[in-house]
């Protein structure tokens, strides 16, 4: 699996976990999870509720520390680092429940993200006048939220907040974007369109993505690869076609009637 660069030396995977273990009470949320995520791919994580999918994202971003095991970002051990230091190394996160600054407008949320990325410290500069404003408007356009740019996010629909949450993460110009159910709350009629745009933007910016998803239609159409989570570990991994036609997946994840 390990890629090789031009010099012929082995290039470590973008993200790698080795034997991650964590328990919450009696529940094993990560049970010896070892996996590699190669750059340039869109990996979907599917699985039943409580299988440990979100826990995996939390461990990879430093929010939860594993009882044992390690996380590597391009070969660097990031396990002990707090989320902010992992973010600064190019890993961004969008959440299942959008994590936004609820008293700020949609545009201001993105501008704050850009200001954090650029380390803007001038106390006399207006946030709205920063050089990155056009870039942030473009991001809002990308997630179809230009019309709500100046509205306080608490007034927006759940779907709009999710999209802005993703845009806030993208504003950091990450190398790796971890998303938890990116289209939940988005109108069914818009889900594919939004994912189309999102995947296109990720490809254009060279961003690798990992997204937890329950909508198999989205997985089938927009993922390059699928990992099936069960009881705190990766049960199967393969192309969307291989995975979604696998009898175990149909039985345990998709449900036979739906299939």
């Amino acid at each position: 699996m390990t890629a090789t660069n031009k010099a012929g030396t082995a290039k470590p995977p973008l993200l790698e976990t080795r034997e991650l273990m964590i328990k919450f009470g009696g529940v094993t949320a990560a049970n010896n999870v070892s996996m590699q995520i190669e750059a340039g791919r869109n990996l979907a994580i599917i699985g039943p509720n409580g299988a440990g999918k979100t826990t995996f994202l939390n461990i990879c971003t430093g929010w939860i520390k594993p009882r044992s095991g390690k996380v590597f970002l391009e070969g660097e051990d990031i396990t002990p680092l707090p989320p902010r230091k992992i973010v600064r190394r190019g890993v961004a996160r969008a959440f299942q429940i959008p994590q936004l600054f609820t008293e700020h407008t949609a545009l201001e949320n993105l501008l704050i993200s850009a200001a954090a990325r650029e380390g803007l410290r001038n106390p006399l500069q207006n946030l709205h006048n920063i050089r990155q404003r056009d870039e942030m408007m473009h991001l809002l356009d990308l997630v179809h939220c230009t019309d709500v740019a100046d509205r306080v996010v608490v007034e927006l629909s759940e779907g709009q907040r999710k999209l802005i949450d993703i845009a806030v993460a993208l504003a950091l110009k990450p190398r790796l974007l971890l998303m938890d159910e990116p289209t939940s709350g988005v109108a069914s009629s818009q889900k594919h369109e939004v994912m189309e745009i999102l995947v296109g933007a990720l490809a254009e910016a060279g961003v690798t993505s990992v997204f937890v998803e329950h909508d198999m239609g989205i997985v089938a159409r927009h993922a390059d690869e699928v990992a099936v989570w069960n009881a705190g570990n990766v049960q199967l991994r393969g192309t969307p076609q291989e995975i979604l036609e696998h009898p175990d997946v149909i039985r345990d994840v998709i449900g036979e009637e739906v299939a």
């Binding site: 501008l111 200001a115 500069q125 207006n126 946030l127």
Partner: peptide, 13 residues
């Protein structure tokens, strides 16, 4: 300012 707005965002998230 960006730094002031970041400071105020402590209140919400």
């Amino acid at each position: 300012s960006p730094v002031g707005q970041i400071f105020q965002s402590l209140k919400t998230n």
